[in-house]
Amino acid sequence: MSSIPVKKDAGEIGKANKRKYILEKVSGRVFLFCALLSVVSLLLIIGFVFYKGSHPFIAEGYSFIDFLLGSDWVPSEDKFGILPMIVASIYATIGALIIGVPIGLFTAIFLAEIAPRSVAKIISPAVQLLAGIPSVLYGVFGLAIIVPFLQNNLGLIKGQSLIAVIIVLAIMMLPTVVTVAETAIRAVPKAYREGSLALGVSPIGTIFKVVVPAAKSGIMTAIVLGMGRAIGETMAVILVAGNSLVIPTSLTDSIRPLTTNIALEMGYAFGTHQEMLFATGIVLFSFILILNFVLARISSKGGN
C-alpha cells in the first residue's frame, strides 16, 4: 500500500482544463480526417480504374495478353493492342533520361560544388521555376520552337516525333533531377571533401570520386523521380508527339505514348473502348508503381 498521501480530488480535471482536453481530442480527429482523405482518394482512384479497366478481360472475354502485345489499336474494329504505346512510352522515357540525367546531374554538381554563391542564387531559383511552368506551356513551346526546328533541320515532313518528345521531357525532368540531386550532394559531409582535398586531390577529382559516390542513393532517387515525371507526362507530349499508332523504329517517327492515348480518346469513347482506355491506365499505373517500389528500395538502402 502506498504511504504517499493523495488528495481526494486529485484525479478530477478542472473545468477550464476540461475544455482544453476536449479541444485536443477534436482537433486530433480533424487532422486524422484530413490525413485519411488522401488515402481514401488513392483507394477510390485505384479501385475505379481497376474495376473499369479489368471489366473487358473478366466479363467480355478479351485477352489481356493480346491487349499488351497487340500492335493494332482500332476501336471501331474492336482491335485493342497497346504495344506501340508501351514501346513509345518506354523509348520516350529512356531517351529523356539519356539527355536529361547528365545535364541535370552536372547542373546539380555545379550548383552545389562549383558555382560561387552569387551565381547559384540566380540559377537555383531559375531551375526550380522550371518546375512551376504548366506542362501545356512546355507543349506549346515544343510545338512552336522544337517541332519547326526539327522539321527544317532534319528535313522531316512532320516535326512531331519521338525526338521532339524526348527533348521536351528532358527539359521537364530537369527541375526534379537537379533539385533532388543538389540536395543529396549538399548533404555529403564537408569532412569528406576536406579529407580528399587534403590528400592533394583536385576539386573535380574529389567531386567524382568522393562526393558523388557518397550521394549515390540521393542521385538515384533523383533519376527515378525524373523518370516518373517523364512517363506520366501527358499534356506537353500530346502537342509534340504526333500521336501516330505505330511502333517507332527511328527517332523521327511520330509516336503515341500511353498517357496521350487516354487523353486523346477518353472524351468520346464509350463501352468497351472506354474500358480499354482504363486498362491502358492500369498499365501506366503499374509502371509508376514499379518506379515507386524501386524508389523505396533505394531510399531504404541509402539509410544503411
Partner: peptide, 16 residues
C-alpha cells in the same frame, strides 16, 4: 603542396 603536407582532422573522416 597538399601532397607534401598531409593532414589529419579532428574527427575521423574516412570515406564510405
Amino acid at each position: 603542396l597538399r601532397t607534401k603536407v598531409g593532414m589529419v582532422f579532428q574527427k575521423p573522416n574516412l570515406f564510405p
